[in-house]
């Protein structure tokens, strides 16, 4: 694929690309740097680039003020839990759609996609009231259920596109070899689809981690995830830019790392398999 490009233009493109990329990355980089500055240095004008006095105090303050650890654990439970439950529901469904399609399969897939288009605010009030009456408000399991439901269509779609690539012959061979459905799925389909299932899992953990409508509207102190945690920093209190930066860094770092590893699967997942 090496196109023949002169070294000059290659240098030109490289500089241009790096400038643009750094510009896009700047808010994250800036936040990361500010997180290690003192509050005074954080708002100094003119600003400093690297922290003059490198400090971890902000992280400590954030933990003391808002209990980062508790929120992070909630985030992990909700995002991983909802994804695992989603996979358990979606794997059989995707098996059906990929290997025993009927005339309605395409319609059902499109309908599932369309549930993603329903604006959350359209159902916010009933969900809020149901949650209130069932005492699910501000609970981790309540939030996990909601997160499972929102991401289920994406999980089904992603698995469907991965399963489609597995030759049906091999599943039929398993049937001929005496495998009942359960064994066909456990011993043949799932092991063959491991890469696809893994990227589905990863992407959905990321999406659930970053979901910020239901996590904010349905939780407060107890079951709050990191999105709720960070929202508590929305009203400034005195000198707080460095602490806000530390909290932001803490909230995004885990998923940023995960995202870097899974960025190639991301395209396929988020486009429902339409772009690979």
């Amino acid at each position: 694929m090496a196109r023949n490009v002169s070294t000059q233009s290659r240098i030109g493109f490289t500089i241009g690309a790096w400038l643009v990329a750094l510009l896009i990355f700047a808010p994250i980089l800036w936040t990361a740097l500010t997180a290690f500055k003192t509050e005074a240095e954080a708002i100094a004008s003119p600003p400093t680039f690297l922290p003059r006095t490198f400090t971890l105090d902000n992280f400590e303050a954030v933990q003391d003020r808002s209990d980062y650890i508790k929120h992070a654990i909630n985030s992990i439970i909700v995002s991983v839990g909802s994804t695992l439950i989603g996979l358990a529901i979606a794997i059989p469904a995707a098996w059906s759609m990929a290997f025993a399609p009927s005339k309605r399969t395409k319609d059902i897939l499109m309908w599932m996609l369309s549930t993603k288009m329903m604006p959350a605010v359209g159902v916010l009030i009933p969900i809020y009231l149901i949650f209130r009456d069932l005492r699910l408000l501000d609970t981790v399991h309540g939030l996990t259920v909601i997160m499972t439901l929102i991401n289920l269509p994406i999980i089904v779609w992603m698995l469907y596109t991965y399963f489609k690539e597995i030759p049906v012959d091999i599943l039929e061979a398993a049937r001929m070899d005496g495998a009942e459905l359960w064994n066909e799925i456990v011993y043949v389909l799932v092991p063959m689809a491991v890469p696809g299932i893994a990227s589905t899992l990863l992407l959905n953990v990321i999406l659930a981690w970053n979901e910020a409508f239901w996590t904010i509207t349905l939780t407060s102190g107890r079951a709050g995830t990191l999105t709720a945690f960070i929202s508590s920093f929305s009203s400034p209190q005195g000198l707080f830019l460095a602490k806000l930066s530390a909290a932001s860094l803490l909230a995004i770092a885990p998923i940023l790392l995960l995202g870097w590893f899974s960025q190639r699967q991301l395209v396929r997942g988020l486009t429902f398999g339409a772009v690979k």
């Binding site: 994250i28 960070i230 920093f233 830019l241 909230a251 995202g259």
Partner: peptide
């Protein structure tokens, strides 16, 4: 470059909003 450019996507909306609001 890819990693740098893709990064904002992984930033949760409230964080994105807050770092822009306060830091920028």
């Amino acid at each position: 470059l890819r990693i740098l450019v893709i990064s904002p996507f992984f930033v949760m909306p409230p964080v994105a909003a807050l770092i822009w609001k306060n830091g920028f």
